[in-house]
């Protein structure tokens, strides 16, 4: 089924959209809902859902079957898009907070929590070697592609993948994950 969905999407046909929705709408909505449920309105969640469907359809050529299952790529796209919406929403509430004081305490609290998370993440990152620190910050903060990072560090992309994978394992352990 995965292959059929991918090939229909690549052909940019109506059928591709139908098949994508029939097969994966619950999963896509579930990923978005799990990220946005306590932060955004139902309308925003729906808007994000439409945006994810558009992105999957529009950027299907970026999907590389050699790098993993379509479902995994789809979840990543939905997750990143939901996080984008979350950030946008937070920026918006910051702006609204300038006009509405009651909003300020809520967004400041959220901001503080976010900052704490970021600080904790940076602290843990420091425990990695210098090169791995660079790789993680370029990949996940500056959002460079693996190929761009490989270019910068004069490494093979495969070596970068390996370092990311090993680093993820270490980070999970240090942050108390399984």
């Amino acid at each position: 089924m995965e292959e059929k969905v991918v090939s229909c999407l690549k052909e940019k046909t109506d059928d591709g959209i139908d098949l994508l929705i029939d097969t994966y709408s619950s999963l896509i909505y579930g990923v978005i809902y799990s990220t946005l449920q306590n932060h955004m309105s139902r309308e925003d969640i729906e808007e994000c859902y439409y945006d994810v469907i558009f992105t999957l359809w529009h950027k299907i050529d970026k999907y590389d079957a050699k790098k993993g299952k379509f479902k995994n790529w789809l979840i990543s796209v939905a997750k990143f898009k939901a996080v984008d919406y979350l950030r946008k929403g937070q920026r918006q509430s910051k702006q609204d907070g300038l006009e509405d004081c009651s909003e300020t305490s809520q967004s400041a609290e959220d901001e503080m929590l976010l900052r704490e998370d970021e600080l904790q993440f940076r602290k843990v990152l420091e425990r990695l070697g210098k090169i791995d620190q660079k790789i993680f910050s370029w990949r996940y903060i500056d959002e460079l592609s693996v190929e761009e990072i490989a270019d910068q560090l004069h490494m093979a992309p495969q070596a970068v993948y390996t370092r990311i994978s090993r680093g993820k394992g270490k980070l999970k352990k240090w942050m108390g994950g399984k």
């Binding site: 709408s25 619950s26 999963l27 909505y29 579930g30 809902y33 449920q37 859902y49 979840i75």
Partner: peptide
């Protein structure tokens, strides 16, 4: 994945 699908089906 099944958990996410259930969550989606429940709320969409």
């Amino acid at each position: 994945i099944q958990q996410l699908e259930r969550l989606g089906a429940q709320h969409m």
